[in-house]
Design a protein around this nucleic acid. Sequence first.
DNA 1: CTGTATCCGATAAGATACTG
DNA 2: CAGTATCTTATCGGATACAG
Lengths: 117, 117
Amino acid sequence: MSERKLSSTNYYNQSFLENKCSLNELLYLVSKRWLTEVLFSIEEGNNRFTSLKESLEYISDHILADRLRLLEQHGLINKSYLPGNPPRTEYVLTSQGSELSDLLDGLCNFAENKMQF
Amino acid sequence: MSERKLSSTNYYNQSFLENKCSLNELLYLVSKRWLTEVLFSIEEGNNRFTSLKESLEYISDHILADRLRLLEQHGLINKSYLPGNPPRTEYVLTSQGSELSDLLDGLCNFAENKMQF
DNA sequence: CTGTATCCGATAAGATACTG
DNA sequence: CAGTATCTTATCGGATACAG
């Protein structure tokens, strides 16, 4: 969505942390709003843009498109173009995507049962 | 560090997601910069403010204090005041804190070995 | 149907100065 | 030693308009 400025401590510190441990890269990705919801919704069988948009109620086109791009860039989903007019696309999880989904389920279980918010 | 405004779609959507699943609350917490590093550093035996600050090199007082407050508020660490002058405090993980740390290790392993960034 | 472009408000991180 | 207060800047999410 936006590039990061090279000349700032903000940028420098984030880079430092991401180099220190990839966990920080992963958290930076999955903590983006709606991202895990998009992943889960695809897993549940919502494979099309409009279907995802409906299942997620309040998400905007802009953000949904961005999250799909991020998920694809990081190898968590595959995108395929179906022939015909109007154009149709289909999204499915990769094996890495479903592995991440399982890990997030574990975190979710912890959050629901053990955390105090 | 800062309060959230009640009258904005930004706030409304975040609330919607947090109510939908606590995973979103947890991710909102652990994705705050330095937070997991502070957790891991305490686990490794850095139990004092200054010791943590040294182990994390570039973290500021402000952020370190904030992250310690958040971790304590959510029951992930305990804070104890040691008697004497100058004042000393000590931080240790709770059982929930180490459970979360284990889950994050799993995520970290995934990030290091399976993810493409 | 499946997106993209541009602008703007809200928030998070950091800089600096200060304190019991 | 262990923090707090105030201010600034960068970034993120969202609104609106538009398009192949």
